[in-house]
Computed example of a mutant assay.
Amino acid sequence: MAKTLISTVDGVHCNAWNHCGERMAGGSLDGCIHIFDSPSQFACTFKWKAHNSSIVKLVWGPPEYGDVIACCCMDGTISLWEEAGEDIESCKWKLCNRFQDSSVPVLDIQFGNCVSGLKLVAAYADGHAKVYELLDPLELKRWQLQAEFQNVSHAVERFEKCSSLTASIAWKSSTNSTQQPTFILGFNSNLPYFNVAKIWEFMEVHQHWHPTAEFIVPGEDADQVYAISWAPNIGRPYELIAIAGSKGVSIWHVELDPNTNERPKLTRVATFTGHVGEVWQLDWDMGGMTLATSGNDGTVRLWQSNTNGVWQEVAVIESSQ
């Protein structure tokens, strides 16, 4: 019999673990943020009103910046919160910054801890992305809008009106001082060219973000994107990307050469169709060797590549109810 570790309060519909797995933050329909702590056996230790509308997504900042949470809402606002205090009795969460540049709903946000500094990218329901950068690592309230662009590769596509249900962002972890900030962005929208997941890289020479690759096979129709996950890399000569869409979950090899200006080489090496219905969540283990997938069929499935490079399902976790 499974033991219940956490019972969330009514209305909490999105959550995120911190990096050490000792705390969980939950966002609710009434705009409140809840903190669940393991020293209190995952009881709700903090709760405060963060927004006036439903919270769509919340994420923890990199641990070197302390306990920091960013959350986004349906009203187009993004807020950044920092825990202040020396012990749990005196702690409180304070607002560091509130980004409100649009009334369009924010669908996803993700931190990127790049060599050039901390960044926060947000995806909006109209197919736009905004990149904010922290100006001072010691002042979490000092942010500026670095760039805004649409998830399209050609100028003519920008004139179409995009309406998205969900969006997904995945950053590439920085590994060296010469690597440019890079992330993947895809949408689940009414327009196929907004949906195609694209790699966006910051071009230092031109000081702008540029799409360097698209995850689509020639001759195939564009697929809606439900989730994206960039695997950790501990020494592979290529990157691994997992993308979930209406056709299943695909695994891609991405060859990036930082010493040349050539576009990345993308190869789809596997497609999984084990789930019944949509796949909502993709998570790699710390070594980037095992992929966990979950969706509306109530199962969690684990996938691994064998010695011949063939991806196989190695475990299925089902609900006992």
Results as ranks from 00 to 15, higher is better:
Ala2Gly: 10
Leu138Cys: 13
Gly248Asn: 02
Leu135Ala: 12
Lys161Ser: 09
Phe36Gln: 01
Ile78Thr: 05
Ser54Ile: 07
Arg142Val: 10
Leu291Phe: 04
Asn259Thr: 13
Val104His: 14
Cys91Phe: 02
Asn259Pro: 00
Ala227Cys: 09
Tyr226Val: 06
His275Leu: 00
Gly61Trp: 02
Ser90Asn: 11
Arg301Cys: 11
Met289Thr: 13
Asn190Val: 00
Gly186Trp: 11
Gly309Tyr: 03
Asn190Lys: 08
Asn308Leu: 09
Lys92Phe: 12
Asp283Val: 10
His51Thr: 14
Phe46Arg: 11
Val310Pro: 10
Pro218Met: 05
Ile78Glu: 01
Gly76Gln: 05
Gly219Cys: 02
Cys114Ser: 01
Cys32Ala: 13
Val225Met: 02
Leu185Arg: 04
His253Gly: 06
Glu89Arg: 15
Ser164Leu: 09
Gln150Ser: 09
Ser174Tyr: 01
Ile234Val: 05
His128Pro: 06
Gly11Trp: 05
Asn233Phe: 03
Ala43Asn: 12
Asp30Lys: 00
Phe46Leu: 06
Lys161Phe: 12
Ser319Asn: 15
Lys130Asp: 02
Gln146Pro: 08
Asp136Thr: 02
Lys47Ser: 12
Gly288Asn: 09
Gly235Val: 09
Glu262Gln: 12
Phe46Gln: 08
Leu145Lys: 05
Glu133Met: 09
Ala122Val: 04
Cys44Gln: 05
Met24Ser: 00
Lys92Pro: 03
Lys119Trp: 10
Ala167Pro: 05
Cys91Pro: 02
Thr293Met: 05
Phe159Leu: 06
Phe36Trp: 15
Val269Arg: 01
Gly127Glu: 03
Gln312His: 12
Ala213Cys: 11
Pro181Thr: 05
Trp60Gly: 12
Leu302Trp: 02
Ala122Glu: 05
Cys162Thr: 00
Asn52His: 12
Tyr124Gln: 04
Ala2Thr: 14
Leu240Thr: 11
Lys47Glu: 13
Phe215Met: 15
Thr8Asn: 03
Ser189Gly: 07
Asn306Thr: 07
Asn308Thr: 04
Glu313Gln: 14
Glu82Gln: 12
Pro211Cys: 03
Lys141Ser: 15
Val225Glu: 03
Gly235Phe: 07
Gln321Ile: 13
Ile35His: 00
Arg142Met: 14
Gly277Trp: 14
Lys172Gln: 04
Gln100Gly: 09
Ser173Arg: 13
Ile317Tyr: 09
His253Pro: 11
Val152Arg: 04
Asp75Ile: 07
Glu239Trp: 04
Ile55Met: 01
Val249Met: 03
Phe183Gln: 08
Ser163Arg: 06
Cys114Leu: 08
Gly219Ile: 04
Asn176Gly: 15
Arg268Gly: 00
Lys57Gly: 01
Leu140Tyr: 03
Asp297Gly: 02
Ala2Leu: 12
Gly27Ala: 03
Gly26Phe: 00
Trp209Ile: 04
Gln207Pro: 04
